[in-house]
């Protein structure tokens, strides 16, 4: 006789499968909460570093000696780099999180504010220490709204790697409209679509900008053109004039 259906095993297997998924959900919840705590701790540490940098630049603007400027700038740049790494991590965590979206959104907002603070401090640093750096604001959005953002981020990341501390790139989520500063910056620089690239005080590109165009924009802003910039092509007529000048 054929065995009767093992109904008990079907139900038990369904129950165990459900338990495993609940376990996964529980682990996910615990991990999300750990991740939020971890990023909050890092945020507090970076907030402290920022305040220290702010104090240092405030102090240096009151004295005539600028000897400590390079070391201060290095510290500032390292903190900014660290903060950007955490921002990227935060974006990944928020994408993976199915449970704790709200906490991640709040953290994202805190980090955005922090980026803007750093951007403003870098202006002060430029003035106080006469630093030859170029600042870039990068407004991005989700893949759906901005199919080119992934490629644009890759190009900007490349530029960051190429120029290291000579170029400061601040990535801002353009959709974070609950943050008034984002709205204000978008208005100031005319960001109407993504990706939006703002080099120093230029108006936003509002489209994908190629590596060459970014390099042109950045390199024209340096007081002293760094070696990473492509060689300048001087028109022939100007070349002749300069030769004549030298001869004269």
């Amino acid at each position: 006789m054929r065995q009767p259906t093992n109904k008990g095993k079907y139900i038990a297997a369904a129950a165990i499968t459900a338990i495993i998924f609940l376990l996964g959900l529980f682990v996910g919840l615990t991990v999300d909460s750990k991740r939020v705590n971890l990023i909050q701790d890092q945020y507090l540490a970076q907030r402290l570093e920022f305040e220290s940098s702010q104090l240092q630049y405030g102090y240096i603007s009151t004295i005539t000696s600028k000897d400590s400027c390079p070391a201060m700038y290095q510290l500032f740049y390292d903190n900014l780099k660290k903060m950007d790494e955490v921002r990227i991590k935060l974006e990944t965590y928020a994408l993976q999180s199915k449970i704790n979206d709200n906490s991640f959104e709040l953290l994202k907002r805190e980090y955005t504010i922090e980026q803007i603070r750093y951007w403003m401090l870098s202006q002060q640093a430029q003035q106080s220490c006469n630093q030859d750096v170029v600042r870039v604001l990068y407004f991005y959005s989700t893949d759906k709204e901005c199919p080119d953002c992934s490629e644009q981020a890759f190009v900007l990341d490349y530029v960051k790697k190429l120029f290291k501390d000579k170029v400061l790139i601040y990535a801002l989520d353009g959709n974070l409209v609950q943050e008034p500063m984002i709205v204000a910056l978008k208005k100031q620089f005319g960001v109407s679509s993504y990706p939006g690239i703002v080099i120093e005080t230029e108006q936003s590109s509002n489209e994908f900008v190629s590596k060459d165009r970014i390099l042109d924009g950045i390199c024209s802003r340096f007081k002293e053109r760094p070696k990473e910039c492509p060689a300048l092509i001087v028109p022939e007529s100007e070349q002749e004039n300069s030769t004549e000048d030298v001869t004269a």
Binding site: G28, V31, K89, Q96, Y158, K161, L162, S210
Partner: peptide
């Protein structure tokens, strides 16, 4: 393609800070 295949600049600046919490736990 967008960076003219300048892979060397990318490799030189490679950093890796793995963290236990970066795993997709689910």
């Amino acid at each position: 393609f967008y960076v003219d295949y300048d892979i060397w600049t990318i490799i030189k600046a490679l950093t890796w800070h793995p963290s236990f919490w970066d795993l997709d736990f689910m």
